[in-house]
């Protein structure tokens, strides 16, 4: 068979076979592979983009986190300072209150003591009076045994009483 003249029979079969192969591969072979690879490429570039975005978001987040920690620390310091002030104020207040109270109690005690003392003095005085009356009675009884002494006394008393009335 000649080398350089195309044989019709072979050409016929080649046309048929190539057409079938082309149909099968173009329908079920290559487009599936290339299509899927394209899809995967899209997916990969999308994933890369997302990863970049996520990284950026993460960076931002860590900055925010630092900021928040800093803020929290400041707030903590402020609260501690406030608390110390309040504590000091409360202690001071409590102190003044306590000293006021103490002063009040002391004053009360003083007045009470004074009153007690007064009443005690009054009692002492009255007892002293009674005692002195009794003493006086005894003294008088001994002095007034004579009638003359009795009369003199009565006179002096009347005189005193009348002087008192005149003065009034």
């Amino acid at each position: 068979m000649s080398l350089i003249t195309p044989d019709f029979g072979l050409l016929f079969w080649m046309t048929l076979i190539f057409a079938i192969v082309f149909f099968v591969l173009a329908k079920f072979g290559f487009p599936i592979i290339t299509g899927m690879v394209d899809e995967r490429n899209v997916r990969i570039s999308e994933s890369l983009r997302k990863a970049r975005e996520a990284e950026a978001a993460l960076n931002e987040l860590s900055v925010r986190q630092k900021e928040m920690i800093e803020q929290a620390r400041q707030e903590q310091a402020a609260i501690l300072k406030d608390a110390a002030q309040v504590r000091d104020a409360m202690i001071a207040q409590a102190k003044t209150q306590a000293s006021d109270e103490a002063a009040k109690i002391v004053a009360q005690a003083r007045t009470q003591i004074a009153a007690e003392k007064e009443s005690a003095m009054a009692e002492v005085r009255s007892q002293l009076a009674e005692l002195s009356v009794a003493v006086a009675e005894k003294v008088m009884r001994t002095q007034l045994e004579s009638d003359k002494a009795q009369v003199e006394l009565v006179n002096r008393m009347v005189e005193e009483l009348s002087r008192n009335q005149k003065m009034n």
Binding site: G9, L10, I17, G29
Partner: peptide
């Protein structure tokens, strides 16, 4: 003459191999 000659038969076998290989891949 459209005989299945050696080349046609070889062509059929090779085409079958080709189709199977690509479809296995797909």
């Amino acid at each position: 003459d459209i005989s299945i000659t050696k080349n046609v038969f070889g062509l059929m076998i090779n085409s079958l191999v080709l189709v199977i290989l690509v479809l296995l891949g797909a």
